[in-house]
Design a binder for these strands. Structure first.
Lengths: 121, 121, 121, 121
DNA sequence: GTGGTCTAGACCACG
DNA sequence: GTGGTCTAGACCACC
């Protein structure tokens, strides 16, 4: 569990949390069955409220990335590599559609975008 | 003035406003000296609050894209084509840096991103 | 808004809330565009926490039954009668599958269940 | 003893246990005098805690479906067929009252419910 | 005034 | 010790 929280970010904390964890799961850094830290422990370590952690965990469960066993803990779901690729693609494409509509509003062509990307990536 | 407002969007309305107008200015659709509609009129037409329009206009002024003449109205600034290109690049790169950091968090390479962009652009 | 809360019920309060409201929407008692009471007002009237109301409203939004306009309030979605029938059926069937599996575990046939239902309905 | 346990279910494990066993007793699958497996053995086989099994057995005793002989084990009670029918009806009706109140909250008539039941039973 | 978020602390059922 | 829920009160952005 390697999480960076920014209190000054525009993004809500719980969203920062589930975005980072979902990325780690879909990259394979957190493997199937991995036992997430108890929400209270995570809350203490990250210096946020229990409810904030809970909200992030709930979103991860809704995405099918983790499952909860009351009284035992939360665990990374058993996803096949193809499931993971599929989910990863879904999540990224969703964001990319927003990004491209922004670029398009400035009149950028695909070539413009690719060129700029190469500069900064 | 061709603006689309979404009430249910996550983006605040004033931000939707100034993003769309700044894009139109930097694309050259709204040319130097163009007289923006009076705040009250814009508010009525767009069915939003006067305060919301005021905030958007203020942000545009802060960006140097428009200037206000008290009692006469707001006008698109006189930017040279190179200034406009420069500003456009600044704004887009600022957003693109955020976008790419998100892609990177999922472990995507430049090639991955370009490929996905080609699919949906 | 006619809601009954039971603090002694096994069901969490937020669930009681969204179940009752979703039922009212799908029965047509709360019509499209109906402005739900502000969460703070609802919390005060129902003598529960703001967060509890928020959680219920969030679930309703997730179900597509209401939508939120920040700064303005929450409103019942514009569902066609066929959409409503569809959603109602989905929700009820989901529960009914659980119920029937319970009846089946006792060896009851469809006829047994129907007969008992007629007795108590 | 043919029991299926779900860790991710909303129902507590001890409840899953006594519901399934009580159903088996009342269906006649477990007959009078049947010696239930020792708590420790059941716990091992079902991969749950001893405490959990104990709680389920206690609930069954409370329902009058089994009795304990200290040092010898737990046995299915000697119920007459009419007693069993009576108890079975009680338990099922109790649950059915909850179920029907839910259906009623959505405005369903007896006919609606019966029709849906026929679809899925 | 409205929703959006967050905190700190509490009680409960469950295992 | 774990998750599940709830409270009361607070600050913020937005309209």
């Amino acid at each position: 569990m390697n999480i960076a929280i920014s209190n000054t970010s525009e993004k809500p904390i719980y969203q920062q949390l589930y975005e980072q964890i979902s990325a780690q799961i879909l990259k394979g850094e957190l493997q199937s069955g991995y036992n997430l830290p108890p929400i209270r422990q995570a809350a203490t370590e990250l210096r946020v409220s229990i409810i904030t952690v809970k909200k992030a965990w709930e979103e991860l469960e809704r995405l099918g990335l983790i499952y909860t066993v009351t009284g035992k803990g939360c665990f990374v779901s058993d996803l096949s590599p193809s499931d993971m690729l599929q989910k990863r693609k879904e999540i990224i494409l969703k964001q990319m559609l927003i990004d491209t509509s922004y670029y398009k509003s400035f009149g950028l062509t695909l070539e413009d975008v690719v060129e700029l990307l190469k500069e900064i990536y």
